[in-house]
Amino acid sequence: MTEGNFVDYVKIHLTSGNGGKGSTHLHREKYVAKGGPDGGDGGRGGHVIIRGNDNLWTLFHLKFKRHLRAGHGEHGSSGRSTGADGEDVYLDVPLGTVIRDTETNEVIFEITYNGEERIICEGGMGGRGNWHFKSATNQTPRYAQPGTPLEEKHVTLELKLLADVGLVGFPNAGKSTLLSVITSAKPKIADYEFTTLKPNLGIVEYRDFQTFVMADIPGIIEGAAEGKGLGYYFLRHIERNSTLLFLIPADAEDITKQYEILLDELRRYNPEMLDKDRLIAISKCDMLDDELQAELKVELDEKLGVDYMFISAVAQQGITELKDKLWKMLNV
């Protein structure tokens, strides 16, 4: 999937169908002068239904679909015939999609498992025909119920990636390089900040044909929780990852400080993110000789309160050990 095809935010206008009108027909046939009321009920208007589909990874198929409308219910007719129901419209979305009311920004519901169906706009009920209203004192009612009106909503679909491992780090920390080495994904890689503007997913192949999903999230900068930089655009994707892999380059001025800044941004955005399993990968370790790496290890053992390991995606150092560690964290 190319970066341009990854769409995780869509606004769409949804409209259900009107209910059909009940019929006011009076029965007439040869030799039956006054057959009485036999008007049928109107059909139900079509629903707009949102459905989870685990074959989808993005909202790209909705990028150019701004309006979605269900069918109207048919009117009732003679012989107590009920009108046909309006056609339901299904909106397939990836798992992890949050549906918000665009006007109030309130979460309506979330789609989390395959085949889950939720009605977002209910079709109008069909009106009852006049035969429902006959009585001993009113044997030929000439009225029926109209169908109830349609329902419409402006909604925002917001995708939060469902991945096993989320890569967290500052811009240009080497996240995309690691993803390209550890998976078959082909993210854009360049020597400047914010090369990655949209999340990338990759399947990590482990031993015995086992796999797990890794997500490369656009880089965090200080103040991201307040919307600075790409802000909320990427932070929501980290919420659904079960394990967080913090990637900090070995040539950083202060590795511990960078980790604390990243952790603080996650805490300010959503404190529950700190409950996830965390691992620090010190990238670009091929720049360090054995002596520097030993000195750095002593310093990190004193300051960091979380597991860490040295890796180099370019030199293929520590990659197998990283897979082993992540797999163990995911399957404890």
Rank of each mutant, 00 (worst) to 15 (best):
N5F: 14
F6S: 04
F6C: 06
D8A: 15
K11T: 11
I12S: 01
G17Y: 01
G22V: 06
T24A: 02
T24L: 02
H25R: 10
L26R: 09
H27T: 08
H27S: 02
V32Q: 08
G35I: 09
P37Y: 00
G39W: 00
D41T: 01
G42T: 02
I49G: 00
I49V: 15
I50Q: 01
I50D: 02
R51A: 03
G52C: 03
L56W: 08
H61C: 02
R66Y: 13
L68T: 09
L68F: 13
H72L: 10
H75E: 08
G76V: 07
G79Q: 06
A84N: 03
V89R: 09
L91V: 15
L95P: 03
L95W: 00
G96F: 06
T97M: 07
T97K: 11
V98N: 10
T102V: 08
T102G: 00
T102R: 13
V107Q: 13
E116N: 00
G123V: 00
G126S: 03
T137S: 12
N138F: 05
Q139L: 11
Q139I: 10
A144G: 10
A144N: 02
P146E: 15
T148P: 08
P149M: 09
K153H: 15
L157P: 08
K160W: 06
L162C: 06
V165H: 10
P171D: 09
A173G: 00
L178M: 03
L178S: 05
I182L: 06
S184Y: 03
K186E: 13
K186W: 01
P187Q: 07
P187S: 07
E193F: 04
E193N: 11
T195K: 11
T196S: 12
P199G: 02
P199M: 02
P199Q: 01
G202T: 12
V204I: 12
V204P: 11
E205I: 07
E205H: 14
F209P: 01
F212Y: 15
V213D: 05
M214Q: 07
M214C: 04
D216T: 00
G231M: 11
G231E: 14
L235M: 15
L235V: 04
R236M: 06
N241W: 00
L244A: 08
A250R: 01
A250M: 04
A250L: 05
T256Y: 15
T256I: 05
T256E: 14
Y259V: 03
I261H: 09
L262F: 08
L263Y: 12
D264E: 14
L266S: 13
N270M: 04
L274N: 10
L274S: 13
L274R: 02
C285T: 15
E291W: 06
Q293T: 03
L300C: 12
K303S: 12
G305H: 14
V306G: 07
D307W: 01
M309F: 11
F310E: 12
I311M: 04
I311Q: 03
V314A: 11
G318P: 05
I319S: 06
L322N: 04
W327C: 05
V332Q: 13
